[in-house]
Design a protein around this nucleic acid. Structure first.
Lengths: 120, 120
DNA sequence: TCATCATGTTATAAAAACATAACATGTCAA
DNA sequence: TTGACATGTTATGTTTTTATAACATGATGA
């Protein structure tokens, strides 16, 4: 599995609201599949399980079997990689852009009087 | 457009390697659609444009038209929101989990002798 | 043991995403 | 103005995703 496959799987996993809700539900501790289905009343049980398997393939959910129960644990470590490669740098970029914009606005404000006659 | 729609669009946009490549290509300055197509030789021009429209819907690409050219600018601000709501908190969670795990490993190492007989 | 319960598997229909082709538009420069 | 050029639009086929239904398994407790 290439690095791109990994990020594809991760972003895909995060790209559906039901799956993000599941992550939020198991953030503070693992839950059984049944408990998750009870919380997600608008979704069929099979649908929840499909979402869980997408999350599992992305490495965001780790499964532990206890008797006939299946406990779904969050593993947030892959998100840490997303942060490092994609989000962090771009977020920093966003902040830098904002700063540039503000500087530009200030410069333009200063020369506004001179530039006015060239405006449409 | 709800907040969930926004995040759906954003993660979806980030969830395809071709689109992530496009983002990287315009990270340091806008490029025309034609320039992007030249860089992405493995993709059809129409496919590139479809990807661009996905990025545009997610607010990650802002289009400026100059004559017959279309200049695609990166807007990384939406990624900043992803960072704040989804990545940051979960990345922090990952770090906390790691710390917990290390603490647990240490505890178990200390009581290893006593616990050994109960192992399978 | 045996009914029940939690979960798993397989199949299928509908919707969305991806990739391409064919045609259309509007701009530039000779 | 006219041909080449950069881009836009519409249509279409293919593949994935999403959501359910129907059936299967395997643990648990009376």
């Amino acid at each position: 599995m290439s690095i791109d496959d990994k990020f594809d799987a991760l972003f895909k996993a995060l790209g559906h609201r039901a799956r993000r809700r599941i992550l939020d539900l198991i953030k503070d501790g693992p839950k059984t599949t049944g408990a998750l289905c009870e919380a997600l009343t608008d979704l069929d049980r099979c649908t929840v399980m499909q979402h869980l398997s997408v999350l599992e393939k992305a490495g965001l959910v780790v499964v532990e079997r206890r008797g006939r129960e299946r406990w779904n644990h969050l593993d947030a470590l892959p998100i840490h990689d997303v942060q490092k490669r994609w989000i962090g740098p771009y977020a920093a970029h966003a902040v830098r852009m904002l700063a540039d914009l503000e500087a530009l606005a200030e410069t333009e404000a200063r020369s506004a009087g001179a530039a006015d006659k060239s405006k449409v």
